[in-house]
Simulated assay, not measured.
Amino acid sequence: MTEPKPRQLEPMPDGWHRALAVVAHPDDLEYGCSAAIAQWTDGGREVAYVLATRGEAGIDTLAPDMCGALREREQRASAAVVGVTTVEFLGHRDGVIEYGTALRRDIAAAIRRHRPELVITLNHRDTWGGVAWNTPDHVAVGRATLDAAGDAGNRWIFPELAEQGLEPWNGVRWVAVAGSATPTHAVAAGPGLDRAVRSLLEHRSYIEALTDEDPEQYARGFMTTSTEAAGERFGGKPAVAFELFGR
């Protein structure tokens, strides 16, 4: 008896101009979807980054005040490699982000500022495919981003934002979740793959603290493995997979 073929991934929609990526830490997007972002910016689309924290608790050998500044610099350099010039940090504490109205408000405010049609975030579920436990920060920010996409368009949720000049934005058409175990859509990595490797390498301090492997070999190996796995369900070409929620 032959095994059923896994469901093929659909191409991501292309009827949009602005995207906003909202994640918890520096490097989350580089591990998650920067090859797709490189493809989009090359095609003339605008992508901005919003990070809940500065990643200040991410390197055991560096105190948070030093680590946060370092990782913020690395994130800005990393974003520039894939054509992203707008990088904002919300100032939540790394490692102890709390899901709730304060986080939703901050993300809704960012959505109102940037007015995207597409919002991108990272896996908001408890595990990575039932194999590894996810971090509380990823879960909180991913879930809050999905909720804030609706909050941003409702005048009566967080009315203080309108008083601050941030009028409701109900133009979010999709929220795309990277790193999902149940993806539905994908973007061909193409030429963006090499830039994604270089983008991840900008987080050199973090990588060197994480592994003894040569940073370039580590970054290229991770990107190759993840994009080839997605490509098995996308015509055999390396790809970045997303779980897409329409609005």
Results as ranks from 00 to 15, higher is better:
Ala102Val: 11
Ala63Tyr: 00
Trp128Glu: 06
Glu98Met: 06
Trp133Ser: 10
Gly165Gln: 08
Gly68Ala: 08
Gln39Arg: 15
Gly129Ser: 11
Tyr206Thr: 03
Ala230Thr: 07
Val240Gly: 01
Gly231Pro: 00
Thr127His: 10
Ala140Gly: 02
Ala110Lys: 02
Thr41Asp: 02
His138Thr: 04
Val47Glu: 00
His185Leu: 05
Glu216His: 12
Thr184Cys: 14
Ala229Met: 12
Pro4Ser: 13
Thr127Tyr: 10
Ala140Tyr: 07
Gly142Ile: 13
Arg173Asn: 09
Gly236Pro: 06
Asn154Asp: 14
Thr2Met: 13
Thr227Gly: 01
His124Thr: 01
Glu167Tyr: 01
Ala209Thr: 03
Gly44Lys: 03
Trp156Ile: 09
Thr211Tyr: 04
Arg113Gly: 04
Ala52Trp: 12
Leu210Arg: 07
Pro64Cys: 06
Trp174Gln: 15
Tyr218Phe: 15
Ala52Glu: 12
Ala77Met: 12
Leu29Asp: 05
Ile37Cys: 06
Thr135Gly: 01
Gly15Glu: 11
Ala189Ile: 05
Ile111Gly: 06
Arg93Ala: 12
Lys237Arg: 10
Gly55Lys: 04
Met66Glu: 13
Asp137Tyr: 05
Glu30Asp: 15
Gly44Met: 09
Thr182Tyr: 11
Arg204Ser: 09
Asp147Pro: 01
Arg113Thr: 09
Leu62Thr: 02
Gly221Pro: 04
Asp42Tyr: 06
Ala19Trp: 05
Tyr31Cys: 06
Ala19Val: 05
Leu62Ser: 01
Gly171Ala: 12
His124Val: 03
Ala196Leu: 03
Arg76Asp: 06
Gly43Tyr: 00
Gly179Ile: 06
Arg125Asn: 01
Trp156Gly: 00
Glu88Gln: 13
Pro11Ser: 12
Val177Ser: 04
Ala48Arg: 08
Pro4Thr: 06
Gly91Asn: 07
Val50Gly: 01
Glu163Arg: 08
Gly221Val: 14
Leu70Ile: 12
Ile97Gln: 10
